[in-house]
């Protein structure tokens, strides 16, 4: 079962860092005792979450319009790339009607 839903408002906690590594010429995602090398799709999704975070449904609307792709497919892709991060407690997730799920806010 997925930990994420379209209505969730998601962002990276302040201590999970996405940055471009000039030595390797690619983006890296740095977290406690973990180094991930995200694929370009994941990088796009993470960058668009921004510091304030996004509702995943809104992000899917935006990407669907921009890439002229079916919105439901885009939403599934967005949730797909974020799922592993959610399971590893590397996302801050706010769900309407709940205080907070997933990793605690920093």
């Amino acid at each position: 079962m997925s930990l994420l839903a379209a209505d969730d408002h998601v962002r990276l906690p302040s201590w999970v860092i996405l940055r471009f590594d000039r030595v390797r010429g690619r983006h890296v995602l740095l977290a406690p005792e973990r180094v991930l090398f995200p694929c370009p799709t994941t990088v796009t999704v993470l960058e668009r979450l921004g510091a304030e975070g996004r509702r995943l449904a809104d992000l899917a609307d935006e990407l669907a319009a921009e890439f002229d792709a079916p919105r439901e497919e885009i939403l599934a892709d967005v949730i797909g790339v974020l799922e592993e991060l959610a399971r590893g407690c590397l996302l801050e997730i706010r769900r309407s009607g709940h205080d907070r799920v997933g990793t605690r806010a920093a």
């Binding site: 930990l3 406690p32 005792e33 590893g88 799920v101 997933g102």
Partner: peptide, 8 residues
């Protein structure tokens, strides 16, 4: 605990 506590 998936999503609540990272376990290694």
């Amino acid at each position: 605990l998936a999503g609540r506590l990272a376990i290694d």
